[in-house]
């Protein structure tokens, strides 16, 4: 990071943070700690329903950590704890009476590296539904989810083959199908295309445009162009601070904060 382009404004300026009316998800002074290290520093923002919100920022800015706090994936990391609140509708996600297992059925996630289960393509989707007590027609659910993930035509003849036989891009779309099969409210994507080639990336981006009709999407991306292409709202994070949050056009064409402008114009990161 280029120090000279980053002014010494440390405190979060609330005028830089867009107010979202009636948000589906709301951070309120959310700080996330790895031991004594504060990886995310008192973030407050709302997430718009049925829109794509991108979180951008250089490596180590805390964007993935923030994303993984939403479905309590950070619970799996020893020493990681959250202060402040995150509200999903009116529920505090970190309330001690809230069951993270049930939360994750409403908030799905797709990871950086495609991570299908060591099972068939069919079972990759059916397993999640089965453990969640799905009583409907599994075949239909599998087909519907694969169609929604724009993968059906490529795999309909090999549903019972191992998921590992698919290409990286297909595996990632399978992971998306697996997540949306549960009909979640919110879909979290943690740099979903960083391990993929440009063609697979384009496929996933156009897929996400389709999916926002059905889901609220939050995507962490290292790729600014990607955020610019697909997102409606963009949050820019730097060393754990939420620097600026606004409509994507505003962030990209008319950023308020100097640091946002430097990052967008590629001067650091």
């Amino acid at each position: 990071m280029n120090e000279t382009t980053a002014p010494s404004v440390v405190n979060q300026n609330t005028s830089l943070i867009l107010e979202i009316p009636d948000p589906v998800l709301r951070f309120k002074n959310t700080s996330i700690w790895y031991g004594a290290n504060e990886a995310v520093k008192s973030v407050s923002m709302g997430i718009k329903n049925h829109a794509i919100t991108a979180i951008i920022g250089p490596s180590g800015c805390g964007k993935s950590t923030l994303l993984r706090s939403i479905n309590r994936m950070n619970d799996l990391i020893p020493d990681c704890h959250v202060t402040g609140n995150i509200y999903y509708h009116d529920n505090d996600i970190y309330d001690k009476n809230l069951d993270p297992v049930l939360l994750r059925r409403h908030i799905g996630m797709v990871f950086q590296k495609p991570n299908p289960f060591a099972k068939s393509i069919y079972q990759n989707i059916a397993w999640g539904a089965k453990i969640n007590g799905y009583k409907g027609n599994l075949d239909q659910l599998v087909e519907e989810s694969l169609r929604q993930a724009a993968l059906w035509d490529e795999v309909k003849d090999k549903l019972h083959k191992s998921a590992f036989a698919l290409s990286g891009g297909q595996q990632q779309r399978l992971c998306i199908a697996r997540a949306i099969a549960l009909k979640p409210d919110i879909l979290l994507l943690d740099e979903p295309t960083s391990a993929l080639d440009p063609i697979s990336t384009a496929k996933i981006e156009s897929l996400l445009e389709e999916l926002k009709k059905f889901f609220t999407i939050i995507i962490v991306t290292h790729n600014m162009q990607q955020a610019g292409r697909i997102s409606d709202y963009t949050a820019f994070m730097l060393t754990g601070d939420l620097v600026e949050y606004n409509e994507t056009k505003k962030i990209f064409f008319n950023p308020t904060d100097e640091r946002t402008e430097s990052y967008i114009s590629g001067r650091f990161g």
Binding site: L76, R104, G108, F111, I131
Partner: peptide, 21 residues
């Protein structure tokens, strides 16, 4: 680890992750 995470992310309990994945 990423396979375990995938299983947790679809709402599996610890036992389901262990025995199922």
């Amino acid at each position: 680890r990423h396979l375990r995470e995938a299983a947790y992310a679809v709402g599996a309990t610890k036992l389901e992750v262990t025995l199922g994945i």
